[in-house]
Every structure is written in C-alpha cells, then in structure tokens.
Design a protein around this nucleic acid. Structure first.
Length: 414
DNA sequence: AAAGAGCACAACCGCGACTTC
DNA sequence: TGAAGTCGCGGTTGTGCTCTT
C-alpha cells in the first residue's frame, strides 16, 4: 500500500495550483461532483493526481470555506477541542464550520502553541507548564508524557462513540450510515458505563419511558436511517436522538439531576444548556466562562479540561438561518448521511452541531448537489414541523411516554 | 538596500484502514 | 483470501511574504 500509485506517474504537475487549474477543478466538481478522486484529474483535464485534486478542493476551493483570520472565539474553541481530542485535526475542524483541518493544524503549529506557552500552559497536555515540567522529571524514563492526556481523552471518547476510537473507522461510515445504534450492541456501554452510571441513565429515562422502548419494539438497525439517529444504552434504553435536539434537551433535562460521577449523564446535562439561556444572540459567542461544565470523570481524564457548554450551546442556536428542515425520509442513501455522520461522530458536540451547523450543511449540500435537494416531504411536513416545534415535547416527565409514543408513531408514519 | 531570519500558509508525503476485484 | 486500488488523516516540507538587522 502506502503511496498512491498515481504519484509515481510521470507528467503530473506538482506545487502551487494555477488559477486555470483551480477553475477547471471547480467547474468539474460543481458540475459533476468529485466521485472517484482518482478519475477527477482526467475528467477535468488536469495534470494532477487525484489526491492533489482532493486536497485542493477540501482546503481551498470548497464553497463553504471561511476566509480570513480566525476569531478569538474560534481560537478558544480550537484550544478547548484540542485539550479533549488532541491532534485530531479533522475532528476539530468538524466542529468549526468553514475551517479545514489543514488550516487549524497550521494555526495551531504557528500560533496557538506559542500563545499557550506564553500563558504558561503546556500545549501538549494543556496543563500548567510548571506542573508538566515536574511530571516530566518524574516521567523522564518513559518519555510517554507527550500527548498522554489527549490520547486518554480520545480513548474515553471512543468508549462513548466507537467512531472516535479510530478516525479510520469513522471513515467507514460512508457506507454504513450513522453508527450510533451500535451502542445497543454494547460497544459504548461495555466496560465503561458502570451500574451507577447506567442507573443515572435510568433516572434520565423514567421507568415508563424505558419500558416503552426496547430494541425489539423499535427494531432499529444501522441500515435503517429512520432509527440510526437514536442513542441507546446497552440494554436498549433510549438516551436521546441526534435528529431531534429538542427531544434530548427537554426529555433529558427534566428527568435527572446532574451526576458528578457519570460522564455520560454530565455530558447529557450539558445538552441542558439552551442557547437562549447561555447567550444573548445566535451570532455573538459567549465568553469561555459562560456555562462551563467541568467534565470531571473520577479525577482522571477530564480533570483539567474545561469544555464550554455555553459556547457549544451557542453553536447550537436553532433556526439561525431560517427554518430549513432535513426530513429523515429524504436521507435515503448512505452518501446522504456522510456529512451528517461526520458532524455527529462526537456525541459531546452533536447537540451543538445538530441545531445549527447541520442546517448550514443542508444549505451547502444543496449548493453542491442541487440534484439531491433536501426538500421537506409535503406528505408528512405537518408532522415534521410539529416535531420541530417546541410544543412537541413539553417538560413533564409524565408526558414523555406519550411523547415517545407519538415519536414512535411518527417513525411509523415516515 | 540587501540579506537572512521568521512566519504563515499551501501542498506534499507516508501511512493505515477500508474497498474492490 | 490476498493483492491492488482508493481514501483520508497527521506530519512534514516548500514557498513566498514580511520583518529585522
């Protein structure tokens, strides 16, 4: 394997792209989509390898790319995400619409690392430099201090969502829809969710609520797009829905007090931050201290990691760009799920991604692939609109059962 | 004014994972 | 089942601009 075979071929241009090449590539992809990257240069009349074309498109030509300098809020977010994800640039980039992994990586290496050091923070561990130096002395023999925290964090996150365990694995989602339902198969719960934690989830879900949901009843599978957005515990209890943020925020927030020992329930409570509570407007990002929740997990992985739920919630401001809806029944093909899967691969941030960024991506998706517009299905739009409305789920736990039954009916309807 | 150091950014490289045949 | 092809990630290098001496 290794190096792409096309790279060995002669007569392929390398180096900077000319405006003519850019135009050719842009025109080709706008018209036909990229399809198989290795065939793009030939079809577009370019003397480049497919990899080069792909990179140029992703890092420079994509129409949704933001231009210009990073804002202070973006920089803060990158630092916070880096503390959790480490050098997983593509995952960090997925949380910052319009920014590429390459761009973020360059910013980090050229600027943010320095800024952190100036603030007395080690850019690798995100701990105070003095503390790191001390631990380095202790750990001098192993040489394993580097990236320990971030790797541990990723490992923890990988338990939450198997897609994060390997970005390679996550990429396989292009043919397998969202992987969330694998939770029910024990992937997340295995060895991670303690009885206490699962009890917390049981608290989250009232007994009636749980009783009304079993995997058998729902008969969901990862190949069934209608149910691929529901999150379940190992025993089939419903944790939430990535397609219905209101379902998460309303159901979850009303049923469980925060559990200081349960990462999942803490994270879930994070969803309880509503944009309207945390920030004054959709576009003005709150300060990093607004609505922060210390994701402390037994004094280990997240001891030093502050994730600003206020910021995340801000990203999740609903209806920021109108009322475009994605109808689940419109998402027939695995490819249709690709963008969404990449967005929702991180359960910590999926709520934020859902409420706002997904809508941006619908717009983008429609720009790029106008032939496959997401158009609300008229036949069920009233149900869908109703679902989107806050009246669909009220804040009473007693009505959750009814809400779930209505949700079930809706799925059946769809 | 010129040289070179520093910097930011774009692009390339090597690799692992996955898919296809 | 394994080789070949493909994709995409993270690390590294190249290039051009700006600043400093």
């Amino acid at each position: 394997m290794g190096r792409h075979s096309c790279c060995y071929k002669q007569k392929l241009r390398k180096g900077l792209w000319s405006p003519e090449e850019d135009e050719k590539l842009l025109r080709h992809i706008t018209q036909y989509g990229h399809g198989c990257w290795s065939s793009v240069p030939k079809q577009a009349g370019l003397q480049r390898c497919g990899k080069s074309c792909r990179l140029r498109w992703i890092n420079y030509l994509r129409p949704d790319l933001k231009r210009g300098a990073f804002s202070q809020e973006e920089e803060d977010l990158i630092i916070e995400f880096h503390a959790v994800l480490g050098n997983k640039w593509s995952q960090i980039a997925a949380q910052l619409p319009g920014r590429t992994d390459n761009e973020i990586k360059n910013l980090w290496n050229s600027c943010l690392k320095k800024k952190l050091r100036q603030r007395g923070i080690d850019p690798v561990t995100h701990k105070p430099l003095s503390e790191v130096e001390t631990s380095d002395e202790r750990d001098a023999t192993s040489g394993q201090t580097q990236d320990k925290v971030s790797r541990a964090s990723v490992e923890l996150l990988s338990h939450l969502n198997p897609q994060i365990s390997s970005s390679r694995t996550a990429r396989s989602s292009k043919n397998s829809n969202l992987m969330a339902p694998t939770v029910s198969k024990g992937t997340i719960a295995d060895g991670f969710v303690s009885n206490h934690q699962e009890n917390s989830m049981m608290n989250i879900c009232s007994s009636d609520f749980v009783d009304n949901f079993s995997p058998q009843q729902l008969n969901f599978s990862s190949s069934d797009s209608r149910f691929s957005n529901l999150w379940f515990t190992q025993t089939g209890k419903l944790l939430g829905s990535t397609l219905f943020p209101d379902f998460n925020s309303n159901v979850m927030s009303t049923l469980s007090p925060p559990s200081t020992n349960s990462f999942i329930s803490t994270a879930t409570m994070g969803m309880d931050f509503k944009p309207s509570d945390a920030v004054p407007s959709a576009n003005s990002t709150s300060s990093a201290s607004t609505g922060t929740a210390d994701l402390h997990h037994g004094g280990s992985y997240f001891g030093n990691s502050l994730v600003s739920w206020g910021l995340l919630a801000d990203c999740g401001s609903p209806d920021k760009e109108g009322s475009t809806s994605i109808h689940p029944s419109d998402m027939h093909q695995p490819g249709d799920f690709k963008w969404a899967a990449e967005y929702f691969q991180n359960p910590l941030f999926m709520a934020a991604a859902l409420q706002n960024q997904a809508q941006q991506h619908v717009s983008l998706y429609n720009q790029i692939k106008p032939e496959t517009q997401f158009v609300p299905d008229n036949s069920s739009s009233s149900m869908w609109d109703h679902l989107q409305g806050h009246e669909f789920l009220d804040n009473s736990s007693d009505t959750c059962v009814k809400d779930v039954q209505r949700l079930t009916a809706l799925f059946g309807h769809i």
